[in-house]
Design a protein around this nucleic acid. Structure first.
Length: 173
DNA sequence: AGCAAGATCGGT
DNA sequence: CCGATCTTGCTG
């Protein structure tokens, strides 16, 4: 189909996180080139959301989350995994959607390893990049929603907010 | 300068 | 359940 334009990413993170499953990440880089259907996402809702990195304030690391929707926020955790996030909303409203799974890979660390995504993709613009973008597939999967993974430190009510979205059927293939 | 914890994963 | 592995952000 065609590349999703910037306006799609200007909505809030929960809305975008619910629409991304079923869409495809297109990689235009050498050996990892291909189409990867998104199967799992999580929304991080700004500086009021204690699970969101931006709740600690604007720092060198979280700066990309303050960019206009449609850019990438990539960061490194546990000394070995890159996390792929799509920034949403207008500039200065730090929100992002974590890509937790695509059809071929389950788990955010496996996604980036499988697609060859690293820190060089931080701040990449999905609306103009020549190596990564998102396209509609026309497919609208049934979704299940539940609490986000690995954010126990956030406490209530954030730890319980149902902001994780996962395709009901084609998961983990 | 030092330290604790982390939006994880893979092996026991 | 625990260790790997290293960046980040806070404390002093």
């Amino acid at each position: 189909m065609r590349r999703v334009d910037r306006t799609f990413f200007l909505d809030d993170a929960v809305t975008v996180a619910r629409q991304l499953p079923g869409m495809e990440i297109v990689m235009e880089t050498g050996e990892k080139a291909g189409r990867y259907m998104i199967t799992e996402t999580e929304a991080y809702l700004g500086d009021g959301d204690r699970a969101c990195h931006a709740s600690k304030g604007r720092t060198r690391r979280t700066e990309p989350m303050y960019m206009e929707g449609g850019h990438l926020y990539i960061y490194f955790v546990y000394g070995m995994h890159w996390m792929l996030n799509v920034v949403t909303g207008s500039a200065d409203y730090p929100q992002a959607v974590l890509i937790r799974g695509v059809s071929q890979f389950s788990g955010p660390g496996r996604v980036t390893r499988g697609l060859g995504i690293d820190g060089s993709f931080n701040r990449e613009d999905l609306s103009s990049s020549g190596r990564i973008w998102i396209e509609e597939s026309g497919y609208r999967p049934e979704l299940d929603a539940g609490p986000r993974i690995g954010i126990g430190y956030a406490g209530e009510p954030w730890v319980s907010m149902p902001w994780r979205f996962i395709t009901r059927n084609e998961n983990g293939k």
